[in-house]
């Protein structure tokens, strides 16, 4: 849906201080002053302070939002040190959100940052309703479905994301989202007999797009006949996501480096149950062997992507990807599947 654009619609009536203008100068030159003002009032929840959570947190805090709540009831483990740079070594076995606070605050003293350590399942709709965007890492499908549903009721934008080893994904639950995008066109400016000369013209256009619920992904049939061609073209990422989420459901945990060999076997069993297509051979041991803990560069990529999406959502500039993102570490391709949209 395309409509008339009011670029200043709902822009908070605040002025940035000189210090803010200077600090955010290089990004204001990219997304403009209005976007920076929108960021300035945004409140974000990041649940799950694993390596991915830390990367998303870093990028969001640097962008200059108003408030970031770090939420986690888990403790820092040795595994976190392979990508969670917000927790110091000496914080082992303390709460991960608490342990991340100090370094998170150092990233940008202008942002209000606090920690919450209560289990996620105890959190009700009032809690989620305080935020503009909620990002949840490392949760079960059941819990993601519950939070997505709450967010839909409350009109809060929702992201689910995960990284296993070097493989990652996000799901965007944005309900109805309005944004502005520049459309760029060429205009012929030369006269008929002259050599053709063009001028670019860019015009902001507003769009309104529907983002389906998380249930659309849970109900999505990866074995559907009509989907196989696409699967072949994009690679087996979406199948791998299914396998890993299934592993989490069955074993109530993720594959562990401590039981690497046994877990590789378990992954293969789930793979063979879930799919019969030739894709199974693409998900060989080499691919499955890179799914343990969270590896820093991959987490940086997925964390960068998720944070950029959150920024797009807050600033209402540019189209957020709809709606399932896959990072394929084998090729380094990052692509988007549209799930649940006819």
């Amino acid at each position: 849906m395309v409509m008339e654009v009011d670029l200043t619609e709902n822009v908070p009536s605040i002025e940035l201080t000189e210090a803010e203008s200077e600090l955010y100068d290089r990004q204001i030159r990219l997304w403009g002053l209005e976007s920076q003002k929108r960021l300035r009032t945004a409140k974000i929840l990041i649940s799950g302070l694993n390596g991915l959570g830390a990367e998303i947190t870093k990028n969001i805090i640097l962008s200059g939002v108003s408030l970031v709540k770090l939420h986690d009831d888990k403790l820092v483990t040795e595994e976190d040190f392979s990508s969670q740079f917000l927790v110091p070594r000496e914080s082992l076995t303390t709460n991960r959100a608490q342990a991340s606070l100090e370094r998170a605050r150092d990233l940008n003293p202008m942002v209000d940052i606090s920690a919450d350590t209560e289990p996620l399942k105890n959190k009700t709709s009032e809690f989620f309703g305080q935020f503009d965007v909620v990002v949840v890492n490392g949760q079960s499908n059941e819990e993601l479905l519950r939070i997505d549903t709450i967010c839909r009721e409350k009109g809060v934008k929702f992201y689910a994301s995960d990284v296993w080893g070097t493989f990652g994904f996000f799901f965007a639950g944005l309900q109805t989202h309005r944004y502005v995008e520049d459309e760029i066109k060429y205009k012929l400016i030369s006269k008929p007999k002259e050599k053709p000369k063009y001028e670019t013209v860019s015009k902001p256009v507003q769009h309104e797009v529907e983002y389906p619920a998380y249930s659309s992904w849970l109900n999505f049939n990866i074995n559907a006949a009509g989907y196989q061609r696409k699967l072949k073209r994009n690679g087996p990422g979406i199948v791998l996501l299914r396998i890993l989420q299934k592993f989490r459901i069955i074993h109530k945990r993720d594959p562990s480096y401590k039981t690497r060999e046994q877990d590789l076997t378990k992954l293969q069993v789930i793979r063979d149950e879930l799919i019969s297509s030739p894709t199974a051979t693409d998900l060989n041991e080499q691919v499955l062997g890179m799914l343990f803990a969270q590896i820093s560069p991959a987490v940086a990529i997925v964390g960068g992507v998720v944070a950029q999406e959150v920024i797009k959502v807050i600033t209402k500039v540019e189209a957020p990807h709809r709606n399932l993102f896959i990072f394929d570490p084998n090729t380094c391709a990052g692509y988007v599947e549209t799930i649940g949209v006819n």
Binding site: L30, W31, N59, S296, P297, A300, Q308, C332
Partner: peptide, 22 residues
């Protein structure tokens, strides 16, 4: 000659760089 620069693009690009280093 200011080139706009944001944290996310740098994070993604550096991540790709180290993935390629592997």
């Amino acid at each position: 000659n200011i080139i706009p620069a944001i944290a996310t693009t740098n994070a993604i690009t550096a991540g790709l760089s180290v993935m390629r280093a592997f």
